[in-house]
Design a protein around this nucleic acid. Structure first.
Lengths: 339, 339
DNA sequence: CTGAAAGCGCTTACAG
DNA sequence: CTGAAAGCGCTTACAG
């Protein structure tokens, strides 16, 4: 028995009357063992309730089969749903997720990185727009494969998986222009990260194609409070907008709540469009027109990219963009003829 | 350098001109090292970017400082928020969270348990009502400390932390009775787990005190679809209810959406009360009257209980119930004189 | 205070 | 196919 009271390969070996190496081989795929030996070992293992110690295995193989997943901001429904799917996809490949909540201060962030390294993770996924460049840079320096989920940073030379954010922004622009909107405001995602910038840029480009400009732009910082304040601000202007494109669904819900509280009808007075298509967007209370981030495809691409880099550390970084369709619901006036 | 290309204590020892044991002592709290030695070692470690390998440390100490967290059903906002707080609280105590998504089939569940054991977790938290008894029983059998979060199972002899669910149900009963409601229906949480049963029992007891009975009861199974169907069913009855107590907020949102879609006004025609007080309950679109599960206190109690059991494995199991206040908002008619 | 040595539980060449 | 042995990176008695 081990120091922790758990059964070891040695215990199984003794019971089965074989060497400890033989026990190990039985639990190693592809190792050569005589069927009779394997049977004896399995019987003994079963009887004792033996399972190889993953930590010991990790020590000698140099592979922990642990992926560090850095998240933040789980109040936005997009992330828990992504977290669940990422975790299941990784489990299906024999990996496990060690969870890290992104820290706020530099000191905490430093510790987070050290812990990530101390646990010998085979790879890292950062699933939050708010991850500092520091984390990504330092992890890359140590040579741990890393994929940014829902955030790009092309200059960094790191892999990323996002939806086609700029294109998504353009789709919203076209849709709102065709819907006859003339004063299209933008309560943007945090402009400190590519995700928010790209969506905004797409909107501007789409408006420019129609000879228009954004009626007003405020950075909502992916924060409900900031978004609500921004909504009040644009509505109190001399000429309020007739449509608002909000940088993500999470803020869009706050914007809709705010408009309704002001007595502004959605979409009769103002159309609202979000980005993400979290499950809640389809719920009756919001019925939000939004750009759908194809979550399963993003998750699959992330896991695939990460595992490919773990297998071949010299692999070039990939920046994948996945097309994001516009989902029309009841929160925005439709172009004529569209239902 | 290690096999994985990472820096080891040996590398640091050579650079600092000391033994490998000395390096280890510098990174072990409470070990005796001369200040001068420590300084040399820290300088070398800094230069090389050294951090002790947590896996190797876990091997010899028998403590991985990893907590297995089993969750499911992250679409219900209660769980991601709990997950975040549990993870942060554990990190603050020097632990890390290995995440497991609860499986559906027995075979998957079997693998989940084996993985949990293989990674030598120091303790387990099951944060989901839908965890099978199997998991809890098997983990207890191996002697790994386990705390059930948001679910009780007193007969099992395992620790648990819940809110005072039965009392919460009573509070709802009293509140609705005082509000003059006469036909109080219950769309319950899953009756296969204590959480749902206790809330229902509390409601019945509270109604009984007023000489009343539940007008109708349907098990909503914590599922949006089931809850929506249940709402339609009770409203289509000959005498529809004038109030519905829903087993958790997640279902209550679906119930409100459904009522509105049927043209039923909330709370003018029907009052709706939930349970949990997830952040979304306070959002304008629902403005849900609900019983607040005191999340921070539940998280603290869970972590405290688990760590106490890790420190002393012979400690008796604890079943903690934390008082849950009723939060009145706009989805339910108020008793006269209350604002 | 410090170093040499044993050992945590495993995998993997290496002989046989 | 199988066992003895080395070794993954660390902690911790044990002498000095």
């Amino acid at each position: 028995m081990s120091v922790s009271g758990r059964v070891t390969a040695q215990d199984v070996a003794e019971l089965a009357g074989v060497s400890q190496s033989a026990v190990s081989r039985v639990f190693t795929v592809g190792a050569s063992v005589a069927p009779a030996t394997a049977a004896k070992v399995r019987a003994a293992a079963e009887q004792l309730g033996y399972r190889p110690n993953s930590l010991a295995r990790a020590m000698i193989t140099g592979k922990s089969r642990i992926i560090g997943l850095v998240v933040a901001y789980l109040e936005n429904q997009f992330y828990p749903v992504a977290l669940e799917k990422l975790s299941r996809a990784l489990e299906a490949q024999g990996y496990h997720v060690l969870l890290f909540m992104a820290a706020n201060t530099d000191g905490e962030m430093e510790r987070l990185i050290e812990d990530l390294l101390a646990y010998q993770v085979d790879g890292i996924i950062t699933a939050s727009v708010a991850i500092s460049n520091d984390v990504t840079r330092r992890c890359a320096a140590v040579g741990i494969p890393l994929v940014m989920f829902n955030r790009g940073q092309p200059e960094s030379g790191l892999s990323s998986v996002t939806s086609a954010n700029a294109l998504g922004g353009r789709k919203v622009a076209r849709f709102l222009v065709e819907g006859g909107h003339e004063r299209i405001a933008h309560i943007s995602g945090w402009q400190g990260a590519s995700t928010g910038r790209d969506r905004a840029r797409g909107l501007y480009e789409g408006l420019a194609e129609a000879g228009m400009e954004a009626h007003a732009v405020i950075d909502g910082m992916y924060d409900r409070e900031m978004a609500a304040r921004a909504a009040r601000e644009v509505m109190h202007a001399t000429t309020p907008p007739d449509a608002i494109f909000v940088g993500n669904d999470h803020m869009a819900f706050a914007v809709i709540d705010t408009l309704r509280a002001m007595g502004v009808a959605v979409p009769q007075d103002v159309s609202v469009v979000g980005y993400d298509d979290v499950p809640m967007a389809a719920w009756g209370a919001y019925d939000l027109t939004t750009v759908r981030q194809p979550l399963m495809r993003m998750v699959e691409a992330t896991v695939e990219t990460l595992l490919a880099q773990i297998k071949d550390p010299d692999r070039a970084a990939q920046n994948l963009e996945i097309d994001a369709p516009l989902i029309t619901r009841g929160s925005a006036r439709l172009p004529e003829g569209v239902t």
